[in-house]
Computed example of a mutant assay.
Amino acid sequence: MDNLFTDSVERLFAEIATPEVIRLIEGGGRADALWQGLEDSGFLDVLLPEESEGAGLSLADVFPLFLLAGRYAVPVPFVQTLLARAWLHAAGIKAPPGSIAIAGFGVRQHGDALEAGTVAFGRVADWVLAQVEAQHVLLPVAAGRRELDSGHGSLNASLRWAAQPTDAVLIAADALPRIGLAALAAASHAPLLAGAASRVLELTLDYANQRTQFGKNIGRFQAIQNQISIMAERTWAARMAAQLACQGSGWEPGYLRAAVGKSRCSEAAAVIADIGHAVHGAIGITEEYDLQLYTRRLREWRLAAGTETYWARQIGTHLLQQSNHTALSFICEDISP
């Protein structure tokens, strides 16, 4: 992507998604002003074709934007909304205004009631794109009830509707894009994890080069260097996996690439968060220090849209079903052609 375009998005995030704004929203404040800034920017429709008032960019083109959203821990479903709008457009539906979370798992129907458990960004989203049994539907969050069931500062929420809202948007079964919502959600979270990991690595390197002990920076101690080298290795592996998840000539992620990206990024998330806190020591868990804004997102996004175990199982199952493939040919032909 053009650096000028990427730089514009980074300047926008630096202005409207500051640590102070993140803390305000995590504390229960409204995200309306932040979201309006994103709406006004015009970036939310970049995956749509130009004839539909989009920019006609591909998923690979916008990968740097997705990384930046993770690096700045943007506390609204920016990446999910871009992908959901493109998904809906491919299904012949114009997305309504507002932010869209993607519920890839955990949506159930009990009689007339609908329940979506632990939806990522469910606390701040305006809509939820979900599959309810065989029906795909876009549900207005305001018509339901939110239940905050996660830890401090979480943006997850479980949602419940007593009946299907009258303003819900139904998607016809014969118009569905190839990519399902589970893989779409996985592809949206992989670059978020990679971006947040890069920020944690940056904060950890800065701290290790500033904090002194026994007369020298702690970054000069071999034990610390070993830990940071592992952290850097995992961070760049996550970035490469996330980039793989966002490969393709169009807007649509590939199922297996999304699976690999989410699996690898989720696997790296816990290690990166643990090492970041180990190097920082006690200061890393304090409310005033920014590290916890990103490590909490790493842990939350690791669990969202399927953990590394779930997606590794999907990849393995797919491989075992391909009797004509070796593991190497499967990677070369199906995952990374």
Rank of each mutant, 00 (worst) to 15 (best):
I230T: 13
I218L: 03
T309Y: 02
F66G: 06
S158C: 13
A86Q: 00
Y289V: 08
E147P: 14
Y294I: 01
L138Y: 13
D61I: 07
A175F: 04
L319K: 03
A273Q: 03
L47D: 04
H189I: 08
G29W: 13
A185V: 05
V107Y: 10
A168R: 11
I272G: 10
L24H: 15
K262I: 02
L38A: 11
G219D: 01
G92D: 05
L148M: 14
E267T: 09
S158Q: 12
G106A: 12
I315Q: 00
V260K: 10
R160M: 15
E50W: 10
G111Q: 02
S198R: 15
G27R: 06
S41G: 08
W251L: 00
G144M: 15
R178F: 07
Y289E: 14
H110C: 09
V279N: 03
S158M: 12
E133L: 12
L291R: 04
R264V: 14
R296I: 01
P165H: 13
F63C: 06
S41P: 07
R239H: 13
L82A: 06
R23Y: 01
F105T: 05
A208S: 12
R11S: 11
V74C: 11
P49W: 02
E20K: 12
P191I: 01
L303C: 02
A143D: 15
R297S: 07
G144N: 15
E50H: 14
F43D: 06
A273N: 05
L291H: 05
V132Y: 11
L303Y: 03
S263K: 00
G144A: 15
L4N: 08
Q243R: 12
G180H: 05
A245V: 02
N3E: 13
L34W: 07
L256G: 08
S266I: 01
D61E: 13
L139P: 14
G98D: 11
N226H: 12
E50R: 15
Y207R: 12
A242G: 10
A113T: 07
S154F: 07
F214T: 00
S99M: 09
P337E: 06
C246H: 00
G117D: 14
H110P: 05
Q292R: 14
V62W: 03
H152G: 09
Q36L: 15
G151L: 08
D45M: 09
N3I: 11
Q210P: 02
L205K: 13
